[in-house]
């Protein structure tokens, strides 16, 4: 018998409780980012002059960060595969690789922002830059939070414990990746 409530062992909806909860978290996150991005897009469509301001964002840094996140998604899904084969230590290693991706992403973002602020593009420069920092900042906060949770999962997974959590954090991580897939063209490409 386990210490967990009997409630956790049931799955009337046909999927494990943890995964069900993560999907609901994803839904609640979709509307958070959805509200912010919808607000941004409608402002953007109305202000033709925002294109000139967006021209000051660095496409190459954005593209590099996209590559980093896509690759970290790959290692996250490979970690899930390893975990479903019962190989905890391998899954943990792949999760640490994913965290490395998160750290790279945040570091690059830090240098990017520092450079832009140096050039005088701060959060109060214009509404475009306000949205730029708010949207990317909210996303970066999700990257950091995901990396911390992933570290906790990885420590347990290395000991072959709670392996089902590898998939759960993976789903969340892919969602964070998905948000960036849309932020990248919105903030960097459309000029």
């Amino acid at each position: 018998m386990s210490d967990r409530p009997i409630a956790t062992t049931r799955s009337a909806a046909g999927m494990p409780t943890g995964k069900l909860a993560v999907w609901w978290v994803v839904v609640s996150e979709i509307v958070i980012f959805g509200g912010l991005l919808a607000s941004y897009i409608m402002h953007r469509l109305a202000h033709s002059d925002w294109g000139e301001q967006a021209a000051h964002t660095n496409t190459w840094i954005g593209a590099f960060n996209t590559l980093v996140l896509l690759s970290s998604s790959l290692s996250a899904v490979l970690a899930h595969k390893a975990a479903s084969e019962g190989n905890g230590p391998k899954a943990a290693k792949l999760l640490w690789l994913t965290i490395l991706g998160a750290v790279t992403f945040v570091t690059v973002k830090g240098f990017e922002w520092a450079h832009e602020i140096e050039l005088g593009y701060t959060i109060t420069s214009s509404t475009f830059w306000s949205f730029y920092y708010t949207a990317a900042g909210l996303h970066a906060a999700h990257v950091i939070a995901g990396a911390i949770i992933m570290g906790i999962v990885a420590v347990a997974a290395a000991k072959n414990r709670e392996l089902h959590r590898v998939e759960l954090i993976g789903i969340y991580w892919h969602f964070v990746d998905l948000v960036w897939i849309f932020l990248f063209p919105l903030l960097y490409i459309a000029k």
């Binding site: 609640s28 912010l36 919808a38 607000s39």
Partner: peptide, 10 residues
């Protein structure tokens, strides 16, 4: 859950 997100962003 489906409605509070935009307000949180706001």
């Amino acid at each position: 859950m489906a409605s509070v997100g935009p307000l949180l962003a706001g």
